[in-house]
Design a protein around this nucleic acid. Structure first.
Lengths: 124, 124
DNA sequence: TTATTAATGCAATTAAGTTGCAATAATACG
DNA sequence: CGTATTATTGCAACTTAATTGCATTAATAA
């Protein structure tokens, strides 16, 4: 199952790199308008995730956002920071701010996900 | 538009009170099995929200969970705590643990939502 | 006891994402 | 370079969670 280098894949990768933030399928679809099918975008993004070059996070708007893995170790994506979703430009970014908490006694942690919405510097 | 006291409404309210945690429509539907329509459950729950007796929160599984308002002031629901969703019993509960963070300069806060998944004391 | 209209049930729709399948096109190999 | 292999694509159809339209039912005010 060797991956192939297709125009769709290249274009989506470029968008992710240029954005320097997490993008939703919806957003990418808007950017590539008509160049490729809706489903292709989903499939390319999910393949990126399988390959560990991106990860997807479910935002507090119920949609998935895809971002390039930078500080993610293989199959252990770093998510212990807050995610910010701008209601203006709709960009999603990772904040420096770490998420910290202590679980009640006897609880076992599996995952955590913290979202902040508002307006980013340029949109405020 | 005066509200009426229907069996559906009563039953759902009792479930919410008994649960002492946030419930999804799915969960409520399972509990009332066949007594009322799926859509009715959604409508009752959403009316509760309109009336300020419950609030709904979108969990990190993409589903809405409804909980009675206790420490919520009118139209200003208190959410500055972590929410815990148990992967075993599927219960959602509010933790004591407060969510704290400082936004980068120039950012404006609108809302925040923090979720932790794992196994609660009885399921661990 | 009846009239008003909120609430319900059922079918259909929306939104985000996934799946099946035949057609297309990267790429490995002779 | 030409061909075979099979990953990738596009289109239609499906899934899941939730909402909407509309005719019918049933709280409740009179």
């Amino acid at each position: 199952m060797n991956r192939r280098n297709t125009p769709a894949k290249k274009m989506i990768m470029e968008l992710l790199q240029a954005a320097n933030s997490a993008l939703s399928q919806e957003r990418i679809e808007a950017e590539v308008k008509g160049v490729m099918d809706r489903v292709t975008i989903y499939r390319v993004l999910n393949r990126f995730c399988e390959d560990g070059v991106t990860h997807k996070i479910l935002a507090d708007d119920g949609k998935f956002y895809f971002a390039l893995c930078h500080s993610c170790e293989e199959h252990n994506h770093a998510h212990d920071h807050f995610h910010f979703r701008c209601l203006g430009c709709e960009k999603v970014e990772c904040l420096q701010e770490q998420v910290t908490f202590t679980l009640p006694d006897g609880y076992r942690l599996q995952n955590s996900s913290s979202w902040i919405t508002g307006y980013c510097k340029s949109c405020a």
